Computed example of a mutant assay.
Amino acid sequence: MVDILLERTVPLPLDEAWRRVTQWRRHGDVVPLTAVRVEPPAPTRRGTLVVARSGVGPLAFDDPMEVTVWQPPQDGAAGRCRLEKRGRVVLGWAELEVRPGPGGRARVVWREEIRVRPLPSLFDGLLRRSARYVFGRALNRLLRQA
Protein backbone atom coordinates (compact mmCIF):
# COMPACT_ATOMS: atom_id res chain seq x y z
CA MET A 1 0.00 0.00 0.00
CA VAL A 2 1.39 3.40 -1.00
CA ASP A 3 0.45 6.71 0.66
CA ILE A 4 0.53 9.91 -1.38
CA LEU A 5 0.12 13.48 -0.14
CA LEU A 6 -0.02 16.46 -2.49
CA GLU A 7 -0.64 20.05 -1.34
CA ARG A 8 -1.08 23.21 -3.37
CA THR A 9 -1.95 26.79 -2.41
CA VAL A 10 -3.64 28.65 -5.25
CA PRO A 11 -4.95 32.20 -5.78
CA LEU A 12 -8.56 31.00 -6.15
CA PRO A 13 -11.69 31.23 -4.02
CA LEU A 14 -12.57 27.98 -2.23
CA ASP A 15 -15.59 27.24 -4.40
CA GLU A 16 -13.61 27.69 -7.65
CA ALA A 17 -10.74 25.47 -6.46
CA TRP A 18 -13.35 22.86 -5.44
CA ARG A 19 -15.10 23.06 -8.81
CA ARG A 20 -11.82 22.57 -10.66
CA VAL A 21 -10.68 19.50 -8.72
CA THR A 22 -14.08 17.79 -8.67
CA GLN A 23 -14.92 18.04 -12.36
CA TRP A 24 -14.31 14.33 -12.79
CA ARG A 25 -14.28 14.15 -16.59
CA ARG A 26 -11.47 16.75 -16.66
CA HIS A 27 -9.30 14.28 -14.71
CA GLY A 28 -9.31 12.20 -17.89
CA ASP A 29 -8.03 15.21 -19.83
CA VAL A 30 -5.02 15.64 -17.54
CA VAL A 31 -4.04 12.03 -16.76
CA PRO A 32 -2.33 10.29 -19.69
CA LEU A 33 -4.13 7.40 -21.39
CA THR A 34 -7.21 7.86 -19.18
CA ALA A 35 -10.88 8.49 -19.85
CA VAL A 36 -13.37 9.18 -17.05
CA ARG A 37 -17.08 8.51 -16.91
CA VAL A 38 -19.44 9.43 -14.10
CA GLU A 39 -22.62 7.60 -13.06
CA PRO A 40 -24.98 9.40 -12.68
CA PRO A 41 -23.46 12.24 -14.75
CA ALA A 42 -24.38 15.12 -12.40
CA PRO A 43 -24.57 16.42 -9.79
CA THR A 44 -21.96 14.58 -7.75
CA ARG A 45 -23.22 13.30 -4.41
CA ARG A 46 -22.60 10.46 -2.02
CA GLY A 47 -22.92 7.24 -4.04
CA THR A 48 -21.75 8.73 -7.35
CA LEU A 49 -19.50 6.33 -9.23
CA VAL A 50 -16.41 7.79 -10.95
CA VAL A 51 -14.76 5.30 -13.31
CA ALA A 52 -11.31 6.04 -14.71
CA ARG A 53 -10.38 3.75 -17.60
CA SER A 54 -6.61 3.74 -18.02
CA GLY A 55 -4.37 2.03 -20.54
CA VAL A 56 -4.46 1.03 -24.17
CA GLY A 57 -6.37 -1.79 -25.84
CA PRO A 58 -6.20 -5.11 -23.99
CA LEU A 59 -3.95 -3.56 -21.33
CA ALA A 60 -6.65 -1.08 -20.24
CA PHE A 61 -8.46 -1.47 -16.92
CA ASP A 62 -11.19 0.31 -14.98
CA ASP A 63 -10.55 2.07 -11.67
CA PRO A 64 -14.09 2.50 -10.25
CA MET A 65 -14.31 4.90 -7.30
CA GLU A 66 -17.42 5.53 -5.23
CA VAL A 67 -17.95 8.92 -3.62
CA THR A 68 -18.47 8.13 0.07
CA VAL A 69 -18.10 11.67 1.45
CA TRP A 70 -19.31 14.78 -0.40
CA GLN A 71 -19.06 18.04 1.54
CA PRO A 72 -18.54 21.05 -0.78
CA PRO A 73 -17.06 24.17 0.85
CA GLN A 74 -19.72 26.42 2.30
CA ASP A 75 -19.62 29.83 3.96
CA GLY A 76 -15.81 29.87 3.97
CA ALA A 77 -15.54 26.40 5.56
CA ALA A 78 -13.45 23.61 4.03
CA GLY A 79 -14.83 21.13 1.52
CA ARG A 80 -13.99 17.42 1.49
CA CYS A 81 -14.58 14.51 -0.85
CA ARG A 82 -13.61 10.88 -0.32
CA LEU A 83 -13.57 8.25 -3.04
CA GLU A 84 -13.26 4.55 -2.22
CA LYS A 85 -11.59 2.50 -4.95
CA ARG A 86 -13.81 -0.47 -5.80
CA GLY A 87 -11.88 -2.11 -8.63
CA ARG A 88 -10.23 -5.47 -9.18
CA VAL A 89 -6.84 -3.93 -10.02
CA VAL A 90 -6.54 -0.65 -8.10
CA LEU A 91 -7.53 -0.59 -4.42
CA GLY A 92 -7.48 2.07 -1.70
CA TRP A 93 -9.03 5.52 -1.44
CA ALA A 94 -8.51 9.16 -2.38
CA GLU A 95 -9.47 12.33 -0.51
CA LEU A 96 -9.64 15.84 -1.87
CA GLU A 97 -9.87 18.74 0.55
CA VAL A 98 -10.14 22.44 -0.23
CA ARG A 99 -9.71 24.75 2.75
CA PRO A 100 -8.86 28.38 3.42
CA GLY A 101 -5.18 29.13 2.94
CA PRO A 102 -2.98 32.13 3.65
CA GLY A 103 -3.90 35.51 2.16
CA GLY A 104 -7.38 34.50 1.01
CA ARG A 105 -6.03 31.71 -1.19
CA ALA A 106 -7.34 28.16 -1.34
CA ARG A 107 -5.29 25.28 0.06
CA VAL A 108 -5.89 22.03 -1.86
CA VAL A 109 -4.88 18.72 -0.29
CA TRP A 110 -4.97 15.42 -2.23
CA ARG A 111 -4.38 12.31 -0.12
CA GLU A 112 -4.38 8.87 -1.62
CA GLU A 113 -3.73 5.36 -0.47
CA ILE A 114 -3.23 3.09 -3.44
CA ARG A 115 -2.46 -0.54 -4.06
CA VAL A 116 -2.19 -2.17 -7.45
CA ARG A 117 -3.26 -5.77 -6.93
CA PRO A 118 -0.77 -7.60 -9.13
CA LEU A 119 2.26 -5.59 -7.88
CA PRO A 120 4.19 -6.95 -4.88
CA SER A 121 5.31 -4.46 -2.21
CA LEU A 122 8.77 -4.59 -3.77
CA PHE A 123 7.41 -2.07 -6.32
CA ASP A 124 5.97 0.38 -3.74
CA GLY A 125 8.79 2.91 -4.23
CA LEU A 126 8.31 2.98 -7.99
CA LEU A 127 4.52 3.16 -7.61
CA ARG A 128 4.85 6.04 -5.09
CA ARG A 129 7.17 8.06 -7.32
CA SER A 130 5.15 7.52 -10.48
CA ALA A 131 1.81 8.22 -8.76
CA ARG A 132 3.15 11.41 -7.15
CA TYR A 133 4.41 12.57 -10.53
CA VAL A 134 1.22 11.74 -12.48
CA PHE A 135 -1.24 12.95 -9.83
CA GLY A 136 0.87 16.02 -9.00
CA ARG A 137 0.96 17.03 -12.65
CA ALA A 138 -2.77 16.35 -12.98
CA LEU A 139 -3.56 18.45 -9.89
CA ASN A 140 -1.46 21.35 -11.21
CA ARG A 141 -3.25 21.24 -14.56
CA LEU A 142 -6.70 20.98 -12.97
CA LEU A 143 -6.04 24.02 -10.81
CA ARG A 144 -4.55 26.09 -13.66
CA GLN A 145 -7.34 25.54 -16.16
CA ALA A 146 -10.72 27.18 -15.64
Rank of each mutant, 00 (worst) to 15 (best):
P11Y: 15
P11V: 13
L14P: 02
D15Y: 11
D15R: 15
D15P: 10
E16C: 14
E16M: 15
E16V: 11
E16K: 03
A17F: 04
A17E: 04
A17W: 01
W18G: 05
R19Q: 11
V21A: 03
V21T: 01
Q23N: 11
W24F: 08
R26Y: 05
R26H: 01
R26C: 01
H27K: 09
G28H: 05
G28Y: 06
G28S: 07
D29F: 02
V30S: 05
V30C: 02
V30I: 06
V31A: 03
P32N: 12
L33Q: 11
T34E: 08
T34L: 05
A35W: 15
V36D: 04
V36E: 02
E39T: 12
P40N: 13
P40Y: 14
P40D: 14
P41K: 14
P41T: 14
A42K: 15
R45F: 12
R46P: 02
R46E: 07
G47D: 02
G47V: 04
G47W: 02
T48E: 00
L49C: 11
V50I: 08
V50Y: 05
V50S: 04
V51W: 04
V51H: 03
A52F: 08
A52T: 09
G55W: 13
G55E: 07
G55I: 10
V56N: 01
V56Q: 01
G57I: 15
G57W: 15
P58W: 14
F61Y: 11
D62E: 12
D62W: 03
D63W: 10
P64G: 07
P64Y: 12
P64N: 11
M65Y: 08
E66S: 06
E66P: 12
V67R: 06
V67I: 13
V67C: 09
T68D: 02
V69A: 02
P73W: 07
P73S: 04
P73I: 00
P73N: 05
Q74H: 13
Q74L: 14
D75Q: 12
D75E: 13
A77E: 09
A77C: 03
A77I: 01
A78C: 04
A78V: 06
A78F: 02
G79F: 00
C81E: 06
C81F: 03
E84A: 07
K85F: 06
